[in-house]
Amino acid sequence: MLVVPALAGLALLLLPMAGLAWRAPWGRLPGLLTADHVLTALRLSLTTATLATVLALIMGIPVAWMLARDNVRGRGVLRGLVTVPLVLPPVVGGIALLVAFGRRGVVGGWLEQTFGINVPFTTVAVIMAQTFVAMPFLIIAVEGALRGADSRYDQIAASLGASPWTTFRRVTLPSVAPSVVAGAILCWARALGEFGATITFAGSLPGTTRTLPLEAYAAIGAGDTDTALVLSVIMVAVCVTVLVALRDRWVRAL
């Protein structure tokens, strides 16, 4: 009795991807891939996703460290809030970013008046949107690992005269390195695929904010199915590569 719905489920998950592979214009692939606008989008995607991951590492690891500590008040609520972007529709994330950092936003208005900086519809906005959506993956992976780390190592390090910072840098962080790597890869893959928050907060400006997913959407809109298919194939390939590289590791880290 379970086989029929299972097969239906598998078909729903796998058929679209098989369809992509089937319909992809493999013969025209080299030409389409090297088209200027595709290369530009690819370059922009790789740059912004990588910078978003770096940002997530710089800010996310300390957040994870804070959440893993028992003596931080309101930790449960904070953890809940931090993980909201995981399930929030990305469009809502984009609207929220616009409200905060938009020209008339709370922070955005101040930025514009004080420094003349305008965030929305720039490459910076792309990176911010990606970080917003992808950082929770890293935070959750690292927090889980930190929580599982043996705190007695910290005591040994302290008895040897190490400051909390030295202990974190030389003992704690190396011990959770596999989870940091897994979290970062997952974060990067999520950033690379970011669409909703980006198009809302950063728009779709060729060369500045039009990343791969946005380029694929634009191509479909313009009736250029072949380009859309090629871009889709690239992104599927990236996702599969990431998941194979991590295999069951990221599931355990989460």
Binding site: D150, R152, Y153, Q155, I156, A157, S159, R170, V171, P174, S175, A177
Partner: peptide
């Protein structure tokens, strides 16, 4: 104060 514990807890990396 120096500590030596049962499972030694040498830094594994």
């Amino acid at each position: 104060v120096g500590l030596v514990v049962q499972d030694y807890l040498l830094f594994p990396r």
